[in-house]
């Protein structure tokens, strides 16, 4: 049984213009020690997929129309909020994009970390050996050391604004992992950071995967991040997963026209000036989307068959396209 198994998830969001069908049948499963990259352009629904797993999408305006999010075999969407809340921090951890806005500016790092540890320990006694505030403080120091913050014991007394962006992201990772979650959802954890710091943070997350024996769902729009730190990847387009599988297979042998176009758009050293290849056209309107494949309007291989939504097919390397490129499969 997979740790996380999302099946045919449909989510609509109410907006001023009408209800947008933002997730259109997402299927994805994550095992322990797998790092899944969820890639796609802005607005394709990757963050909403991540938030859905923590059940942090406000409903309304959100509305789940169909599907299941099975975590350890139980459907999160069918659970009452109290039970989902009990999973947060101890079973499902989350880190977010912007470390400057995700720490509370009015409280010391230590206070925040200790409160998270205490909250986790109440539901998972194994988190704190011995229990109590003193044990939580010791654990907080250990966690900060583990994520690579020097002078951890002293830095507990500091406020978030006294840390750099990369350090703050480390603190947030420490907070997300203090409850020893089985699944970590990382929503663009490196987007707001310098390139050199990005690499450090990605290595840190990778090293934590084995230590905590957890699965990771890493949301990003950066294929470089995926290549560097993921074992698997799912490519999203306009609310659909169009292609998924082991990183090597998908990046080396993309079958879906969208994945192929994405990879072709990455400039390499040999790319001549002015020879960048973008993708013509724009993302469809999700309030009244065209029937069938949502990529059809921008696709070079479009045919009459494309008015019917193609299912995600295949064993390990899966593709949702009627004209998938199977030449090298």
């Amino acid at each position: 049984m997979a740790l996380l198994d999302i099946r045919d998830l449909h989510l609509a969001m109410r907006s001023f213009d009408g209800e947008a069908h933002v997730l259109n049948g997402i299927s994805l499963s994550v095992e322990r020690r797998q790092v899944w990259g969820l890639v796609g352009e802005t607005g394709c629904g990757k963050s909403l997929t991540g938030l859905s797993v923590s059940r942090l999408v406000p409903t309304p305006p959100g509305r789940y129309m169909r599907g299941e999010i099975r975590f350890d075999g139980r459907d999160l969407l069918a659970m009452p909020e109290r039970q989902v809340a009990a999973l947060r921090g101890t079973r499902i951890g989350m880190i977010f994009q912007d470390p400057t806005t995700n720490l509370n500016p009015a409280f010391r790092i230590g206070t925040q970390l200790v409160d998270v540890a205490l909250a986790a320990a109440r539901r998972k006694p194994g988190v704190l050996a011995g229990g109590g505030r003193r044990a939580a403080e010791r654990l907080a120091v250990q966690m900060l050391e583990k994520v690579g913050i020097a002078n951890a014991a002293e830095r507990l007394q500091d406020y978030p604004h006294q840390f750099s962006g990369g350090m703050r992201q480390r603190v947030l990772i420490a907070m997300a992992l203090v409850g020893q979650p089985d699944l970590l959802i990382a929503d663009e954890p490196t987007t707001a950071l310098d390139v050199s710091v990005q690499a450090q943070i990605l290595r840190l997350i990778r090293s934590m995967v084995d230590e905590f024996d957890m699965g990771v769902l890493m949301i990003t729009h950066n294929l470089g991040v995926v290549a560097q730190s993921c074992t698997h990847v799912a490519v999203m387009y306009a609310g659909n997963i169009v292609e998924s599988g082991p990183v090597r297979d998908v990046l080396m042998h993309p079958r879906h026209p969208y994945t192929q176009a994405l990879l072709a758009a990455i400039p390499t050293r040999g790319t001549a000036r002015g020879a960048l290849r973008g993708l013509a056209g724009a993302v469809p309107n999700l309030i009244a989307p065209p029937p069938g494949c949502r990529f059809a309007a921008r696709c070079g291989r479009v045919s009459a068959a494309c008015t019917v939504l193609p299912p995600l097919t295949g064993a390990l390397h899966r593709t949702a396209c009627h004209h998938a490129d199977h030449a090298d499969a």
Binding site: S54, L56, A85, A86, L87, R88, G89, T90, G93, M94, F96, D98, T101, N102, L103, N104, P105, A106, F107, D115, V116, A119, A120, R123, L172, M175, A176, G179
Partner: peptide
């Protein structure tokens, strides 16, 4: 509406602690 409130929920802090303290 600040990010850190959503983060606090995602980290599993109890709602009462989030509102009355943070």
């Amino acid at each position: 509406q600040q990010d850190y409130v959503m983060t606090a929920r995602a980290l599993g802090l109890p709602p009462r602690l989030i509102v009355f303290k943070y």
